[in-house]
């Protein structure tokens, strides 16, 4: 087993273990932290795949954004320091079934896709100390940030301009909604 494969297994075990702990722990804050570790591990997996951009976005969005939001809502919730009660057996059974169904769906989808064998050599290359020398990421693989940017804003075949605009419209609506909620209404009698 090469070092690269070993790394993959370590990362995967970390992700799965943290994910399992996230759903089994009875302290809500610990649950959030385990989720965070799981998501960070996924970012690590992206780094391992040399998809640095996706990894960075994973960290910015999930870790820096969503988990921080979750932690904030835990902080603002009353009695969130208590241990959660053990859920009813029916509920455990149902959630296990739901997880299993999700896993089955993902598994069939992955199995149905025909992966091409990797031809670029070991993903981890030498030259950690002298980085300029050897560490050349897979620019040609189409995952460079320039390609992603062009693709995201291109109106050609396979471009993502329309979804991009739709999403930005959605975010704009959400932002205006926030402002409307937070705005102080001036009383009419003044």
């Amino acid at each position: 087993m090469s070092a690269s494969a070993l790394m993959f297994y370590i990362l995967s075990a970390f992700i799965l273990g943290a994910g399992l702990l996230a759903v089994t722990t009875r302290k809500i804050f610990r649950s959030a932290i385990w989720l965070l570790f799981s998501l960070t591990g996924i970012a690590g997996l992206y780094f391992w795949l040399q998809m640095e951009f996706v990894a960075a976005v994973q960290i910015v969005v999930y870790v820096g954004g969503i988990v921080v939001l979750i932690i904030f809502s835990i902080f603002l919730t009353q009695r969130s320091g208590m241990e959660l009660p053990v859920p009813a057996r029916g509920r455990i059974l149902f959630s296990a079934l739901a997880a299993l169904a999700g896993f089955a769906l993902a598994f069939t989808l992955i199995m149905g896709y025909h992966f091409q064998p990797w031809e670029g050599g070991a993903p981890l290359q030498g030259g950690m100390l002298a980085a300029g020398a050897a560490a050349g990421p897979v620019e040609a693989g189409g995952a460079s940030i320039g390609n992603i940017g062009t693709q995201l804003l291109s109106a050609d075949q396979g471009g993502y301009l329309l979804p991009f605009e739709v999403v930005s419209l959605l975010l704009l609506a959400a932002m205006i909604g926030c402002i409307v909620i937070a705005m102080k209404v001036k009383s009419a009698d003044k």
Binding site: E52, A56, V57, V60, G65, A131
Partner: peptide, 19 residues
């Protein structure tokens, strides 16, 4: 590590420190 998203990497990781 001279990775191709250097600046983005820095902003991403520094958002971890709040955790």
């Amino acid at each position: 590590w001279d990775l191709n998203i250097g600046v983005l990497y820095v902003t991403a990781i520094s958002s971890l420190s709040v955790i």
